[in-house]
Every structure is written in C-alpha cells, then in structure tokens.
Nucleic acid binder design. Sequence first.
DNA 1: TTGCTCCTCACGTCACGTGAGGTGGC
DNA 2: TTGCTCCTCACGTCACGTGAGGTGGC
Lengths: 276, 276
Amino acid sequence: MPLDPQLFSIGEFSQISGLSIKTLRFYDERGLLKPALVDATSGYRYYDGASLERAHIVAQLRRLEFPLEEIARILAECGDDLDLLAHLERQRRVIEERMRADREIAGDLAKMIALEREAAQLAAAGGFAIEEKELPALLVAGVRMTGRYSEAGRGIALLGRKLGRYLTGKPHCLYHDAEYREEDASFEPCFALRTAVAAPDGIAVRTLPATRCLALVHQGPYEQLSRSYRKIFGEAKRRGLAIVRPTREIYLKGPGMIFRGNPRRYLTEIQLPYAT
Amino acid sequence: MPLDPQLFSIGEFSQISGLSIKTLRFYDERGLLKPALVDATSGYRYYDGASLERAHIVAQLRRLEFPLEEIARILAECGDDLDLLAHLERQRRVIEERMRADREIAGDLAKMIALEREAAQLAAAGGFAIEEKELPALLVAGVRMTGRYSEAGRGIALLGRKLGRYLTGKPHCLYHDAEYREEDASFEPCFALRTAVAAPDGIAVRTLPATRCLALVHQGPYEQLSRSYRKIFGEAKRRGLAIVRPTREIYLKGPGMIFRGNPRRYLTEIQLPYAT
DNA sequence: TTGCTCCTCACGTCACGTGAGGTGGC
DNA sequence: TTGCTCCTCACGTCACGTGAGGTGGC
C-alpha cells in the first residue's frame, strides 16, 4: 500500500472519475487506461492525477458514443482537440445515420398506432345499425377490374405502388354491377387522393359525386358480407329508395400490417347511394 | 426429403423470407420460428406457408427493432394488429428516447466541430502581427476578482454555471490594473451576452464601450504572455497612444473540451483600447 | 471473528455472423 | 471424385455487469 497521497485505490478512483470499478478493470485489461501502479504482491491497482485526466477524456468520448477501439487510437494519435476534427465529423455521421433510421422507425410506429387507435374506436363505438349519411364529393384513383372479387387486393396493391404518396384514407371498392356476380363481376378498387394527379396507365382518376346514401358497418369476414347486403338492400326496398350505382365498400379494418388478424374483427362499411 | 411441394428447404425458405440461413437456425433454436418439419435422420429443416407468414411477422417486428423476447410474447398473445397497440406505443417510446439521446450527442458533436473548425482557421490564417482594430460596443457579464490570474478559470466556470445559455462567443478577461501584479491583481473574467439579462449575485452586467484598439494574437502558453505584452505595449508607446483600462484578453483557443491540448497551440488575443 | 476492499475467473447480455469439420445424394 | 446443400458446435462481437470464491489488513 503506497503512502503517496496522490495515489488512489480503484474504489476511490471510481468515485472521483465516475467510472465503475468493473469498467476501470475492463479498461485496464483493454489497455485503454492503465493504473499508474500495480502492487506486485496484492495485484491492487493505484491511479494518479494523470490517470484521472485520461479517465475524463475516455469518459467524454464514451458519452459521445465513440467505440473503445477508436478512443484508443485517438489517445495514441491526438494531443489536442484540433486533431479530433476528423474523428468528430465521422462520429457525427454515425449518430445522424442512426437518427435517420430511428426517425423512419418512429414514423412507421406512429402511423400504425394512429391507424389501430382509429380502428379500436370504430369497433368500440360501433352500433352497426343502418343509417342515412351525406357523402361529400370525393376525388379518387381507381383500377377497373373484371373477374372475382377476391382479386381486388391486386388492384389495391397496384394503386399503392403507382400512387402511394398521393393516396389517403382507407381502401374503397366500387361495385358497378346491378346484381351479384361470382365470376365476371365488374368492380373498382380505389383510394381517395390527397391532391389531383395525372392518371398512370390502367388507373382512372375522377370525382365521385356528392350523394346521400344508406350505410351499414359489417363486422366479420368478407365471406359473410352477403348477409349485411341482404339487410341493407331490404331496408332500401322498404324505404322505396332508388339505388344509384356504383355502390361502395370501405375497408375500415381488414388484415393488419403485421398480423393477418382475426376476420371476425374486420369492419367493412357498405354504402348504397340513392337518388333524391 | 419430403416430396410435398409446399415444403421449402432452409435455403429456399431463406430466399423467400429474406432471412439468412443463420438467422433461421437461430430463430429455431430460440423457439421463435420452428420449421414445419425436421427430418429425423438428416436434421434438415423444412418450412411451409404458415412458417412464411410467421416469418414475415417476425421480420416486420424486427425491422421496428422489437427485441426477440417481446416478439415471442407478441406472437403468443396477439392475433391481430389491434392487440399490438400497447406494444407499439411502448416501442415508440423506446425509439424516441434513443433519438432524444442521439440528438443531444449530435448537438454536442456539432458544437465541438464548429469550435474546432473556427480555431483551425484562426491558426492557419494567423500572421500574428500587431494591428489596429475597431471594437464595437459589447454587452458582457463579468465576475470581478482579486488575486492571482491563474484563478480566472473559476470565474469563467461561475459564469457558465449561472448564465450558461445566455453566453456567446469566446471567454474574455478584462485587466483593471495599470501595471502587472502577481498576487492581488484586479481582473474580470467575462463573456458576451446574447441578450440582456438580470445579473445574479456576484456577477456584473454592463456594456463595454466601442473603441479603437491595438491587437495582437499571442500563440503559445499563458506563461509566455508577458513577451507579447512587452511587444504590444512597446508599439503603443512608439505610437504615443493613451491606453484606456481595462485592457482585454480573448481566449481564441485554449484547452479543448476533450484534451487539455498542447499549450504551444493556444491562441490568445491581446487588445489595448486607446483614447482617440 | 466480522466487515471491508480488493483480486481473478467464468459466464451472461443481444442478435446474430464466422468458420471448422462433417454428412448425404447427385 | 467434385460440388452442393445441409448439419452441429464453438467462438466472436460490444462494453461492460454479475456473481462465485478468495485474499489481506483493520
């Protein structure tokens, strides 16, 4: 045990420097911060003022998230902050690249959270009764398709690929047939546009007229939509309304972005526009 | 080797899912993504369509930086994106906390880079000759001290603690004595203020008047300042100028924020205001 | 003897990647 | 035989932290 009052045991030095004892031993092992003196018989480490200065440099650079290996190089090569410039600039690029990636993740998370919150509120509030509604005029981009309804997903995907950043709101589908068809139905997956845009090949951009409609939110798998259609068409007939094609479906909640989800929780709004 | 065309070898499945073979084996080991079938004799792993769906879920959640353990819990508990809400919100907090920390680091790095660049330009441009200068009026906060010059650092530190975010530019020091004193010098460490502010106890806020001065940049340790003082006072005498106290020192480059630095690279500007 | 500070050594963390050495069927 | 795909097992990464078991002096 040295008597020199300048020397600190590892415990004392840990207090002074703010580095844990384990960290100090680790830095010693890595050659980053050697004690000023090691007692040959006990193996005790002793640190001095120069160690403290070095410890502060290491701690500062670690706070800036420099890797230990680069800190070692810096300590070997730099004697002055001026020599640090290149290192600082590189580290800033590293940190900013990480922030950029995190911003993307945080943005995606925020988007998903907003969507799910909305869907949760819908499901909670849903009385699922037939109601009358006023629909405003709506600028949409749509893909006219003929075939099976189950192919609608491809149309939605095409819209997403071609016009992704102009689209807004939930996916819609317009039905142009007067009756239900299994094989060669004529329908049109579409999305609202946040701004007018030139229509790419195979995509039509137009404005759906403002109209009154009868609306019903269907809860459950798409295979059971026919039940809700029977209900709402029955009501339209009872009221003597003249349905105006195309009718509309809005997919309030379908398969999620992560999970395909439970189809019994899907929510689909059916809208039957009528003449007034 | 099963003949079922629905089954994929690990190599094929890696291609389809975008997960590396090593990652697939690791997920298997961790129980996160078990193959649909493992050949008992060869140990070969075979995956099917359900594995693919699960693989996509895992990959999506990994992209959002969820830890594997949480993904395992999510897969066990959630069947729908709606059930994810709490997880998504927690993860967003995690990511945003990391961004907050990174913003601080990036800000500190940017500040240091700007300071060092400035110092590097000064050192590169320095002719270090005596010149005449017009000084504008300057609003400063200072700490009047009596004692040894070497204590000036404490005054600077005090200013930083009390008024940190109002201060701008480099540290200054004003010298009120008519001659050099060793022990009971009267000097005043100070900083320019970016905005007027009420003076805390022990700190004086005032405006230094606009004036003409003789200026010289001293390069080297503070101990050698006297040489530069001799030079500049000699020149003032030759020109017959009437020096107006306090004289000023500006620490253009001193010890860095990381390294104490090499004193031979310190830059200190001496300013002698004179009556016109 | 108890308590305190110090020591070494092995292992864990997190999500994989690397590489050695081997197998089985074309 | 060569080449290909698959396998297991051990070890490395990054910057430490945890914990077991032990020492030496008050």
